[in-house]
């Protein structure tokens, strides 16, 4: 009797635990529910680029003004103009510049802005500079980090497919280019003589 009671109690506990551990659903319903919540990062990135980044270009700082300020007071300049979502030393700036193309390289363009040399990336458009430089995107908008990172990848794709071809067409030796761009700088190891601008938008002026 005692053994029967023990086994019965054990089975009862097992049943309660199992009941609270698993649940069953039809696979179709789960898939339907998941697809409703799936973010189309391509569509999102496109509308983010058109409606958020391009309408916020007035926040961009002139690149020469930025480098002057960084030389004079780096900490304060980073505080005032840099954007980043992480806690590391990498920070992003949204910049504007008008200058001359002085050399056309395989992966970059040499760019002279009032006597100061910079380079514009034309091949390797990677990382989060375009997404983060504007400072208007936050992680909390997204349900998961994968979507957040995919938006960054799609934004880079937009730059590669739309902005860079246009830039390459206009960028002949000695031609004048005006652009809005994103710049990545390391707060701790600041190198102002190696600034590379990722083109975000070619402006007319």
């Amino acid at each position: 009797m005692n053994k029967l009671l023990k086994n019965g109690l054990g089975l009862l506990i097992l049943g309660v635990v199992a009941y609270n551990s698993v649940y069953f659903k039809k696979l179709d319903e789960v898939k339907k529910g998941n697809s409703k919540n799936t973010l189309d990062t391509k569509v999102y990135a496109n509308s983010f680029y058109q409606e958020k980044i391009l309408t916020n270009t007035d926040k961009a700082i002139a690149i020469n003004k930025l480098t002057d300020k960084l030389k004079a007071n780096p900490d304060e300049t980073f505080k005032q103009y840099a954007h980043s979502l992480g806690i590391g030393n990498i920070r992003y700036f949204l910049v504007k510049a008008t200058g001359k193309i002085t050399k056309i390289n395989e992966n970059t363009l040499d760019f002279d802005v009032d006597g100061k040399p910079y380079s514009i990336a034309t091949e390797f458009i990677f990382g989060n500079a375009v997404r983060d430089a504007s400072g208007i995107i936050t992680m909390t908008t997204f349900e998961n980090t994968m979507d957040f990172n995919n938006v960054s990848a799609e934004l880079n794709e937009i730059i590669r497919n739309r902005v860079v071809p246009d830039l390459k067409k206009k960028a002949t030796l000695g031609s004048q280019i005006s652009l809005i761009g994103a710049v990545e700088l390391n707060h701790k190891h600041l190198k102002l003589n190696e600034i590379e601008i990722v083109p975000v938008f070619l402006s007319d002026k």
């Binding site: 635990v17 609270n20 551990s21 698993v22 649940y23 069953f24 659903k25 039809k26 696979l27 789960v30």
Partner: peptide
């Protein structure tokens, strides 16, 4: 969870179930 397409079945796990 666990998906079994041939049975059109999805087995979901609660926190307790997954830890166990």
């Amino acid at each position: 969870g666990i998906s079994i397409p041939s049975l059109n079945l999805f087995i979901g796990f609660s926190l307790l179930g997954a830890i166990l």
